[in-house]
Amino acid sequence: MSATTTDTSVSTLEPTGRARQLAAIRRLRALRWIGGQFFLWGVILLGLVFMVTPGVWMLLASFKTQAEISAIPLQFWPTQWRVNNYVETIEVMKFWRVFGNSLIITSCVTIANIFTCTWGGYTFGKLRWPGRDIMFMVLLSTMMIPGFLTLIPRYVLVAKLGMLNSYSGMIIPFLTGTFGIFLTKQFMLGIPDELIDAATVDGSSALGVYWRIILPLSKPIMAVLAIFVFDWAWDDLLWGIMILTDRLKWTLPIAIANLRVQESNQYELQMAGSTLAIIPVIILFLALQRHIVRGVALSGLKG
């Protein structure tokens, strides 16, 4: 290919000229590299501004007065940082109470999903059994039906199981999920069969393989599952409204939705509530992000 021309042309030069040539090429490369980095960072920074502005706006709005939020023309900074918005929001929402409820429910759901989805991923991705692909397709197809359509039968079921107005009613119906199993199955394809075969030869049962091989190797995908499931469960509104009637058992999204209905004009309280609500998700993401990138890489790449 034409690619080798630089090599051949360089090799025909005198030793001293060649060194100079190489230095020039290196300089050129360095310049191009710097130029490239400038371009790349330009794009990245532009994107950063675009991505961050609404979030920053939300944060700033949470410190403003109502009048400042809807001021004309647009007022970006609060004239005075009203920490009191947070104090008021925490009181109006019964924040610590609903925050605790959300934390308990979401943690239960997340931890359960980490185990059930890796279990499912192993079953559908690694074990070989007749009917596997059909059953998997059936599971996958449940992702294609809008959730609210099955709301009433699900409610009746949970009511019959005596789980209304309780944390268990918020947890038991969400112990596993199709998306999580799909994600983990993709990841499992990347775990070499030889490892499993070797363990089997050493006398490990399938359960032993799951516990000793699959779980340790699945840490990255567990992190991905944790963040996806946590984020999703943390945000769920409709089911909570159906199940929880006692205001002391409400979760954060319900309390925020209620703030929206009751304090419909008080954007600043809604923004303060929303800002408080996302903090745990951000902490979780920051703590797990290394694992997440590895997990996604491994689930996406190996076919």
Partner: peptide, 9 residues
């Protein structure tokens, strides 16, 4: 936390 939570109702 979860167990406490599940038991709480």
């Amino acid at each position: 936390l979860a167990l406490v939570g599940c038991a709480a109702p």
